[in-house]
């Protein structure tokens, strides 16, 4: 455990030493802020119209504001996470520090979980920044804190899947760029794949829905924690990390 934490801490600190972290967090805050503002304006207009035309009082901030915002955020996250994971192994391999990690008394599993926790810490920071805007909502209206909490839990888990996938791709190459592009393409594919779900047959549809990471987020954004989704996310993360550990080991044998 000490080894895992040491690697995670080092990972986090080196993220902050590189401009990538600041760019990622800063841009994310900016994009999130924009979406927040846009959703807020949209919600305010609809709300105003509703009261003007007497369509039954002010609208529900949870359904009309938080949920669409969170669904948007889940997509924004997809665009940003490759930036946080692309360095992880690719850079260590390029600079030769990977040789240090692999010749110290560490298990592959410790290295992989250390990297995972490091990237997750960085991601949590990104989410924390966005949480500031959400707190504004609590000042202005009375959103349900439960729904906010489950949404963020969902974002954390979904991001965990993205991170696991990103680590896997980073472990395959010495180039950050290649790792980043591969991760981004894979995530994009897993996102757009559920667009085809509606037109597909029942079997295809089930497969597609199982693959689509973002699809499982929907319930979280509505304030529901369904164990099915929880298990899905946790096993996705576990499997991703397992594959990463295998990739490191097989690289060893190839030399």
């Amino acid at each position: 455990m000490r080894n895992v934490l040491a690697i995670a801490r080092r990972e986090l600190r080196s993220s902050f030493a590189s401009p990538v972290a600041y760019v990622a967090v800063g841009l994310f805050a900016l994009v999130f802020g924009y979406f927040f503002y846009a959703t807020l304006v949209f919600f305010a207009e609809r709300s105003l119209q509703a009261t003007q035309f007497g369509m039954g009082g002010p609208m529900n901030v949870n359904q009309m504001m938080i949920r669409p915002l969170m669904l948007n955020v889940s997509v924004i996250v997809l665009f940003f996470l490759p930036m946080l994971t692309m360095r992880a192994f690719a850079e260590e391999k390029r600079s030769g520090t990977f040789e240090l990690l692999l010749t110290r008394p560490l298990t592959d599993w410790q290295i992989v979980t250390g990297k995972f926790l490091g990237a997750m810490a960085m991601y949590s920071l990104m989410l924390l920044v966005s949480l500031v805007s959400i707190l504004l909502l609590f000042l202005l209206g009375n959103p349900e804190w439960r729904q906010v909490a489950t949404s963020y839990l969902g974002l954390l888990l979904m991001g965990g899947c993205f991170v696991a996938l990103g680590l896997f791709f980073s472990s395959l190459t010495r180039s950050q760029l290649v790792a980043g592009v591969l991760t981004f393409s894979a995530l994009l594919l897993l996102w757009v794949i559920n667009w085809t779900a509606d037109s597909a047959g029942p079997v295809m549809r089930a497969v597609v829905q199982a693959l689509s990471i973002t699809d499982h987020f929907d319930d979280f954004s509505r304030g529901v924690v369904d164990t099915r989704h929880l298990v899905y996310y946790l096993s996705f993360i576990g499997f991703g990390l397992f594959l990463t550990a295998r990739a490191i080991d097989s690289e060893r044998w190839k030399g």
């Binding site: 080092r10 600190r13 080196s14 030493a17 590189s18 600079s95 030769g96 520090t97 990977f98 040789e99 240090l100 010749t103």
Partner: peptide, 12 residues
Amino acid sequence: YLPETPPLYPEM
């Protein structure tokens, strides 16, 4: 072990 290229993290 001292590898051929010293395994240093430049930012540390």
